[in-house]
């Protein structure tokens, strides 16, 4: 992997390997394996990373990578210090780690990142007896890829999952605010059907809503204002960068919708005859006949809200006009598009 593209924390994770001169060959090979997607089934737990690495031939190797977790007491003190600074807490809430946090660990007597390769223990099922094999390197880099997009994985590896951290952060606050009601509660989005009974045809009063469509300038650089205000996205991508990727798609969609806004409706043509007698309805019915293969008078009556007799008369008229043909008799009468009857 080209580490210059990665975040500083990614670099800190791979530094111990890349600073070891004797590993150069293996590093190159391992990186190739990672890049080719040969690392699979990776799992991160406190103190342990496991994964499978497959080369072009031979049995896939099972790799384990270990580092002792950071002590409870250290974690508590670090989280307290983070909680005391809104800036640090905010970064953590946004899923980011900072140099300042790394500093806190050091000051509390622990290292967040491995200092050198000996801080880590590699185990691999391959035949290479060295402390670090190409498979281990591949897994190390694979974890770097993951950390790059989601740095809190390094915290998980060192003993604290995301949820545990957030909980600890809340607990460490000294202010009166009670955040215990918080947490990402799973939204309940279904309920038993019987709850519909009382409101089946009518619930509350339909609110009178107002809408404002003009949003001012949404052109270059200002498109997707919500996205731009969300802060960095996945993989530390800047929001402007994400907005610029999506802007052409949204712009085209918005233009389509803006046409819809001013689209002429039946209401705008006040003198147009009732839709049930308008020519356009003929077209609609003929189109429906094509779509469904055939129409029956009761079907049309239902759709148009007219009596079956009226519907039959209307369909008969379409037959007279040469737009539909009648097939079958009595209750089996159906009306089909002209071509279909031939």
């Amino acid at each position: 992997m080209n580490t210059t593209e990665g975040a500083w924390w990614t670099q800190r994770w791979v530094d111990p390997l890349e600073e070891a001169r004797d590993l150069r060959q293996k590093l190159r090979k391992g990186r190739v394996l990672t890049r080719r997607g040969r690392v699979t089934e990776m799992d991160v737990r406190p103190g342990l990373v496991t994964a499978m690495v497959a080369e072009d031939t031979g049995v896939p190797s099972s790799v384990r990578l270990r580092q002792p977790v950071i002590q409870e007491a250290v974690w508590s003190r670090v989280v307290e210090r983070i909680a005391r600074s809104a800036g640090q807490a905010s970064q953590l809430l946004q899923g980011r780690i900072t140099e300042q946090m790394v500093q806190y660990f050091e000051e509390e007597g622990a290292e967040l990142f491995p200092f050198d390769q000996h801080d880590l223990t590699y185990f691999c099922t391959c035949r290479d007896d060295a402390a670090v094999c190409v498979h281990a390197v591949a897994v190390h880099y694979a974890l770097a890829d993951v950390i790059n997009g989601d740095p809190l994985v390094i915290f998980e590896f060192r003993g604290r999952s995301r949820a545990e951290l957030m909980e600890a952060l809340r607990g460490a606050r000294t202010t009166v605010i009670d955040d215990s009601a918080g947490g990402e509660e799973e939204a309940v989005d279904t309920e038993v059907a019987d709850s519909l009974l009382d409101t089946y045809w009518k619930a509350g009063i339909i609110p009178h809503l107002a809408f404002r469509l003009s949003a001012g300038d949404l052109e270059e650089g200002a498109a997707l204002p919500v996205i731009r205000a969300l802060g960095p996205g996945p993989g530390e991508t800047s929001p402007d960068e994400i907005a610029d990727v999506l802007a052409p798609i949204v712009r085209m969609g918005r233009r389509r919708v803006e046409e819809l806004v001013e689209q002429v409706t039946e209401e705008d043509v006040p003198d147009a005859p009732n839709p049930t007698s308008a020519e356009s309805l003929d077209d609609v019915l003929v189109a429906a006949a094509y779509q469904h293969g055939s129409l029956t008078s009761s079907f049309v009556a239902d759709a148009l809200g007219v009596s079956v007799l009226e519907a039959r008369r209307y369909l008969q008229w379409l037959v007279d006009e040469g737009r539909l043909a009648q097939v079958g008799r009595a209750r089996g009468t159906r009306y089909v598009p002209l071509e279909a009857s031939e």
């Binding site: 003009s214 949003a215 498109a223 919500v226 806004v261």
Partner: peptide
């Protein structure tokens, strides 16, 4: 329609 016109997506 309002959300799309304002690019609130």
């Amino acid at each position: 329609v309002e959300a799309i016109a304002r690019e609130q997506v």
